[in-house]
Amino acid sequence: MAKKFSVLAKETLAPGINRIVVSAPLIAEKAQPGQFVILRVNERGERFPLTLVDWNPNEGTIVLIFQEVGVSTRKLGKLEVGDYIEDIVGPLGNPTDVEKYGEVAVIGGGVGTALIYPWVRALKEAGNRIVTILGARNVGLLLLEDKLRSISDELYISTDDGTKGVKGFTSDVLKSLLEQGRKFDLVMAAGPVPMMRAVAEVTRPYKIKTVVSLNPIMVDGTGMCGGCRVTVGGETKFACVDGPEFDAHQVDFRELMNRLRTYSEEETLARSTVS
């Protein structure tokens, strides 16, 4: 078993958003859609989660996509081909329930788009008809459009500033589809918390089963600490072992948002340590 995890390829998808291919044979062999890994970039690094976007068991590789927002993603962004990541553990979390549902809307916002790629692929393979909705702040930040188009039955785009597709949010696109009388058997969404909450509110009156992948702060990722706890249907759950996917209509998004802000000051300070 290789002790360290080397970066085999690196590509910039959009400003500040990178895609890397990493050697991690054991993880590649076991990975399933919806699962994630916990990384520690170097000796002084923190542990943080990233979703498994893709994997190749034959080559022993995994694909990660991340936006450089804080100290750790900036450090990760600085790694070049041939560099090593100190620690990666996974695959963690429960796999997505992949079944034949029928017509499925899959929604990705911002870097969350990377997360929906394994969903779309697996749901398509299971015989579902896929309507993909992508969103970003502007056209330059749209991710994986071509890849997702090639495996979706329909694809819609929204940008906050209207530089491509519908001006507005992914939830607006979903809403107008529903208002036109489109029916979905399942909606899945990944992205910033306000976006996931908006999607949940759009589908709630239609009683469409809606699944979101939650992104709370995590430390160990194995159920040891409860740092990632969320309230779902009035009960406390640990996202790392009970999730990360939950019924969107049961999630306390406000609490999740509050908890995500725990370290905002510290994060700003830490970010400044990486130029």
Binding site: G45, E46, S72, E266, E267, L269, A270
Partner: peptide, 10 residues
Amino acid sequence: RFPEYDTPIK
């Protein structure tokens, strides 16, 4: 030892 180490605590 934050911010010498990256993990914060409050």
